[in-house]
Measured scan of single mutants.
Amino acid sequence: NQASVVANQLIPINTALTLVMMRSEVVTPVGIPAEDIPRLVSMQVSRAVPLGTTLMPDMVKGYA
């Protein structure tokens, strides 16, 4: 089972991601792979992401 990136806190719209905002977790459906966490740092979210939400490619500007 592949771990995905999950929000560790509420991430407001247009916030630049930092390591403390993200954790890896095995979830369904699968989201952005956990190994991409270093690449996500400083990228902005395109919408508010609630705590515990799996990050999907369309939620991060410039990821897809």
Rank of each mutant, 00 (worst) to 15 (best):
P38Y: 07
L40Y: 02
P12L: 09
S4G: 05
A3M: 10
A7R: 00
P12N: 08
L19Y: 13
V41T: 07
T15Q: 06
P29Q: 09
E35V: 09
E35N: 09
T53L: 11
P38W: 05
K61G: 07
R47T: 12
L40C: 04
P29I: 07
A48Y: 07
G52T: 02
S24A: 13
A7I: 11
V20H: 11
P57N: 06
M21Y: 06
A16Y: 06
Y63G: 05
Q2P: 15
G31K: 00
V20A: 10
I37H: 03
V49F: 03
I13G: 12
S4L: 01
V60L: 11
R47S: 10
T18C: 03
A48G: 07
V30K: 05
Q44E: 08
V26F: 11
V45W: 00
A16N: 12
V27F: 03
S42L: 07
V49C: 15
P33K: 07
M21H: 09
L55I: 15
R23E: 05
V60W: 01
Y63W: 13
Q44R: 07
M21K: 03
I32C: 03
M56L: 14
T15K: 05
N14S: 13
P33E: 04
V49D: 02
A34Y: 06
N1I: 15
V27A: 06
V6Y: 01
E35A: 10
T28D: 15
Q2N: 13
L40Q: 00
I32G: 00
T53I: 10
V30H: 09
I32P: 00
M59N: 07
Q9S: 08
Q44I: 10
S4R: 02
V5R: 00
G31T: 02
N14A: 09
P50S: 14
V41C: 05
M56Q: 09
Y63I: 05
P33Y: 12
T53P: 01
M59H: 14
T28N: 11
L10F: 09
S24T: 11
K61Y: 06
V6M: 04
E25H: 06
P33S: 13
M43I: 05
I11D: 00
V26C: 07
V6Q: 04
E35Y: 06
L51T: 12
N14P: 00
P29W: 04
A34L: 04
S4W: 02
N14L: 09
A7V: 08
T18P: 00
G52W: 05
M56T: 13
M43F: 10
E25Y: 06
K61L: 10
D58F: 12
Y63Q: 04
A16K: 09
S42M: 08
A64L: 13
V41M: 05
M56N: 08
V60F: 04
S4C: 04
M22F: 06
E35W: 09
L19S: 09
L40F: 02
I37M: 12
V27M: 08
S24Y: 11
Q44N: 07
V6L: 14
M59T: 07
P50T: 15
N1C: 06
R39A: 08
V45M: 10
N14D: 13
S4K: 01
D36A: 09
L51M: 15
G62T: 04
A16S: 11
V26T: 10
T28C: 15
S46C: 05
A64E: 12
P33F: 13
M21R: 03
M59R: 02
V49K: 01
S24V: 11
S24Q: 10
M22H: 00
V6P: 01
A16I: 06
P57I: 06
R23C: 05
G52K: 04
D36Q: 12
P50E: 12
M22C: 03
L40E: 00
S24N: 08
D36C: 05
T53V: 14
R23H: 08
T15P: 02
P57V: 05
G62Y: 08
T54S: 04
S46T: 13
L17Y: 00
Y63A: 04
D58C: 15
A7G: 03
Q44A: 07
A48Q: 12
N14R: 05
S24P: 11
L17W: 01
T54V: 10
P29A: 05
E25P: 00
V5D: 00
L19H: 15
T54W: 01
V26P: 06
I11H: 01
A34M: 13
I37N: 01
Q9T: 11
T18E: 13
A16L: 13
P57L: 04
L10H: 10
N14T: 05
M43E: 09
V27P: 01
V5N: 01
T28F: 07
M43Q: 09
T53D: 10
